[in-house]
């Protein structure tokens, strides 16, 4: 931990040098931190948000960028590499990469998983459910992280502010715990808000897997009973987003999603989401606490953003003639405005 020992003098210099020699970057004063980023599909928004934040704070960092390109088998090698390079922090992106690098909290194998190096995970849908940590307040491990999912009650309120709806349609697959748990939470919230949840299971094919081909039919069937479809946490629906959302739009029923992908890359009308970029920044703030503030990762709670983004797919809004209320437009990220397809939101 040479970098740790260098920390104090670095801080001193950081404070003193500007006093002695006028404005000069404190970055110059210290050896850069070494951060390994373990990515699932390249340096996307969360990764950029992370790096931008640290840059904005003038924290010098040398990055070891490791993109596993959706190959879990590449992960064990990276554990060894992190140790070899004596990095100060490992950041993992997504559920698979995080579990691969860090392991379930009750099945940690020091040979396979990182234990001695501080770690931060991000873009993990359900860190509790997959067993990454036993508690969000304290991980009990040498790691912390950030949450990406927006709570169901916040979701429902956002939907109501777009358009008052009573009957929420949910299609879910039973082979994913996430999907089932998310539905349960939704039912509870709906109860409190006086909403009705109409839920339908996706039938299984002969191999016992949910049958994607059934989605358009199910959606068409349910269209008359619901005011809006809601996509919660489900990898299955995320994969088959186009079939699902297009069928809904064809029936004139809007889709709201808990993640940004169905809105940005498919035909969901709206979604209240944690922007990955912002999640990356939040994660970076925790990195700062660990590297500069000297806090132990297990003392840093795993938190969600306090402000979420409402994304509206204007192309779908046009098709459904379902425009966001004027007041909402001030806060919404409106995308796919005709003439400027896939308009990127403003980025710092």
């Amino acid at each position: 931990m040479t970098s740790r020992t260098a920390l104090l003098p670095a801080l001193f210099l950081g404070l003193l040098l500007p006093l002695l020699f006028g404005p000069s970057g404190p970055a110059a004063a210290r050896e850069p931190y070494k951060i390994m980023m373990v990515l699932w599909r390249g340096c996307e928004d969360a990764c950029r948000g992370f790096q931008d934040y640290l840059r904005a704070q003038d924290i010098p960092v040398d990055y070891l960028m490791r993109d596993v390109k959706q190959d879990p088998l590449a992960l064990p090698r990276l554990v060894a590499e992190a140790r070899a390079f004596q990095v100060d922090l490992v950041v993992t992106w997504g559920t698979t990469a995080s579990l691969g690098m860090l392991g379930r909290h009750d099945q940690v194998d020091p040979d396979l998983h990182l234990t001695d190096t501080p770690a931060l995970f991000m873009i993990v849908t359900d860190p509790l459910g997959v067993g990454l940590v036993p508690s969000l307040e304290r991980s009990g491990r040498n790691l912390s992280g950030s949450l990406v999912v927006v709570p169901e009650d916040v979701q429902m309120r956002a939907i109501q502010s777009y358009r008052p709806v009573k009957r929420i349609g949910v299609v879910y697959n039973t082979d994913e715990i996430n999907a089932v748990v998310s539905l349960e939470r939704l039912r509870k919230v709906a109860d409190e808000m006086g909403l009705t949840v109409v839920a339908r299971e996706v039938p299984l094919d002969e191999r016992g897997k949910p049958y994607a081909g059934s989605l358009p039919g199910i959606v068409a069937d349910m269209a008359d009973e619901v005011d809006l479809f809601y996509i919660g946490s489900s990898s299955f629906l995320l994969v088959h987003r186009d079939a699902f959302t297009s069928a809904a739009v064809a029936k004139g029923v809007p889709v709201a999603a808990a993640g940004e992908v169905p809105v940005m890359e498919s035909n969901a009308l709206m979604g209240l989401v944690s922007r990955y970029y912002n999640v990356g920044q939040l994660t970076a703030a925790k990195a700062e606490q660990i590297l500069v503030g000297g806090k132990r990762p297990e003392d840093i709670p795993i938190e969600a953003l306090s402000r979420f983004s409402l994304i509206v797919n204007m192309e779908v809004a046009h098709k459904l003639k379902l425009y966001p209320p004027l007041g909402l437009q001030r806060f919404a990220d409106v995308i796919k405005v005709s003439g400027q397809p896939h308009a990127p939101e403003a980025k710092p």
Binding site: L326, G327, R330
Partner: peptide, 25 residues
């Protein structure tokens, strides 16, 4: 400016939703 933004999204002026509520606020 709010209405202009809505029009910029391609919403026809007669179909902008929630104008009265927004103005009332």
């Amino acid at each position: 400016a709010d209405v202009e933004r809505a029009l910029g999204y391609g919403i026809p002026i007669s179909e902008v939703v929630g104008v009265a509520e927004h103005f009332e606020k």
